[in-house]
Amino acid sequence: MRFLSTELPGVFVVEPEPRADDRGLFARTYCRDEFAAHGLCIDWVQCNVSFNTKAGTLRGMHWQSAPHEEVKLVRCTSGAALDVIADPRPDSPTYRKWIAVEITAENRRAVYIPGGLAHGFQTLADGTELFYQMSAFYVPDAARGARWDDPALGIAWPACAQRIIAPRDLSFPDLPI
């Protein structure tokens, strides 16, 4: 596996190194020892799947507050998505900075997201499924969110014919100035 650092400290794109032959390919997508060698989480307590029927589905921006922060390892198992990570922590030097990574079933990339950062995605194809490995259990009272189109974030979401967003995500506030 290759661990590619990003502009947000602690966020990595994890690329498998497939070994191909006439049958197809084989690749590791997780290795406890390699993750530990990079100082990354190796204790996953929960796995989740997000299946999205239509292209243009947008989920986010979500995180859990302290002491319930969730480290996430997110990969696309079907379809394609633009995965977005933003820093909602006012005391951070990267406050309101964000990155976007295209993850697809074809490129097999994963995104490693440290606890405390906001996460969201927009599907780029019908039938897109994302698989999440989580370091902490979901705690409803710790759930937080920021508006997907917060002008201070300025996330460049892909244009689409119809964006599908849950009412809860539409009701999130902007990040504090």
Score class of each variant (00 low, 15 high):
R59P: 07
P67C: 10
G39W: 05
Y30R: 03
P16M: 11
C41V: 05
A55D: 03
E17N: 12
T57N: 01
P18C: 13
K54N: 15
Q46C: 02
Q46W: 07
F51E: 12
F51Q: 06
R23C: 13
F26W: 13
G24Q: 14
P18F: 08
A37R: 07
A27C: 02
T53D: 01
N48V: 10
D22C: 10
R32Q: 15
F35P: 10
S50R: 07
N48H: 06
P16G: 10
R32S: 13
P18S: 14
G39D: 10
P16T: 09
A37L: 05
E69C: 09
A27W: 10
H62L: 02
A36T: 03
Q64I: 09
C41A: 02
Y30N: 01
G56E: 08
V45P: 03
A66G: 06
H38C: 08
G60C: 03
V45S: 07
H62Y: 11
W63G: 04
A66T: 15
C47H: 06
A66L: 14
T53G: 00
R19V: 14
H38E: 14
P67A: 05
A36W: 03
D21K: 04
L25R: 12
F35L: 09
H68M: 00
G60Q: 03
V71T: 15
E69W: 09
R28W: 14
W44E: 04
G39A: 07
F51N: 04
A55T: 12
E34D: 15
E34R: 11
T29F: 01
A27D: 06
W63Y: 15
H68F: 08
E70I: 05
